[in-house]
């Protein structure tokens, strides 16, 4: 290593070939290679398939916009799935905003030393497969299951019939994505300076005023990141509608799955995937353009 260092030191700066990659770029090459294979290549393949001849495997050998045209055909009801997915995602975000805010507030201001433990309780379910957790809820709500059986054992009428409905699908999504809303929101609230709240209170501001004028605006970047993350995850959710909802609703990601499996129509599935990806991508870029990441990360 010593020889190498001397050799470098003796090389005059102006003699270095300009086209050579910097040390940083060289070190990044393996990661760039990995990303190209693992991240970019599948996306390029999906893009290629989306313009391939319908029901074929002529990827990169054919070009047609038929797959996209079919999606916008008035007789195609795939828009129903898209609307349901958007609706579920919006409701999930709205419900989680209301549910997660008090918990995030508690983790920052109320729970004190117990905060760390309570945080772990919210993270813990993530260690268990989502499908397993959802099947657990099925056992809880199913006829003669945990809830229904217990209520009947207590001499009551039994549990409500909630399984296999759109409502239970929404419940499953709220349950699954709670941590993804909670932790960005907690981070956002943690960035609200305590002194500012105390100063406002000293100057006579009421609780609601402090919340509206100080806490909420300052925590907003965290809240918006949580909302964005939850929305993006929820719009692509399938398991909740399948396992808890009993496919009472066909969501858009399920339609994509059907195209790739039973329909044997990868080009159609790819076109749908591209369209959904562009929609989510545009939405994400729009939201991120409205966020001040510097402020969120506490750099000013």
């Amino acid at each position: 290593m010593a020889d190498l260092t001397i050799a470098h030191a003796e090389t005059p700066r102006e003699e270095r070939p300009t086209h050579r990659l910097s040390a940083g770029a060289l070190c990044a090459l393996p990661v760039i290679g990995l990303l190209a294979i693992g991240f970019a290549a599948p996306l390029v393949a999906i893009l290629g398939y989306s313009v391939a001849t319908p029901r074929s495997f002529d990827v990169f050998r054919s070009f047609t916009l038929e797959n996209f045209a079919a999606l916008f055909d008035p007789t195609n009801t795939v828009w129903l799935s898209f609307l349901w997915s958007c609706g579920f995602a919006l409701f999930t975000v709205a419900l989680l905003a209301v549910i997660a805010y008090p918990i995030a507030y508690g983790l920052n201001r109320v729970f004190g030393r117990a905060s760390a433990f309570i945080s772990v309780l919210f993270v813990f379910p993530l260690f268990v497969s989502e499908n397993v957790r959802l099947y657990g809820w099925v056992l809880f709500y199913i006829k003669n299951g945990v809830l229904d059986g217990t209520l009947k054992w207590l001499g009551l009428a039994g549990g409500p019939e909630v399984l296999y409905t759109p409502g239970i699908t929404l419940f499953g999504m709220v349950y699954t994505y709670l941590p993804f809303m909670l932790f960005p929101m907690t981070l956002g609230l943690a960035l609200v300076p305590r002194d500012l709240v105390d100063a406002a209170r000293d100057l006579g501001a009421g609780r609601l005023f402090i919340w509206r004028e100080i806490e909420l605006p300052l925590a907003m970047p965290g809240i918006l990141i949580g909302m964005l993350l939850t929305f993006v995850l929820a719009i692509g959710a399938t398991a909740e509608a399948k396992i808890l909802g009993g496919q009472s609703i066909i969501v858009i990601s399920h339609d994509i799955e059907i195209a790739f499996t039973y329909s044997q129509n990868w080009p159609a599935g790819s076109a749908l995937a591209v369209l959904v990806t562009f929609f989510i991508g545009a939405l994400t870029l729009f939201a991120l353009s409205k966020l001040d990441l510097d402020r969120m990360l506490g750099r000013r």
Partner: peptide, 13 residues
């Protein structure tokens, strides 16, 4: 037939 059936499934909701 599958396209027809998939469309029918979407009307469940």
């Amino acid at each position: 037939a599958l396209d027809i059936m998939n469309a029918a499934k979407r009307l469940r909701g």
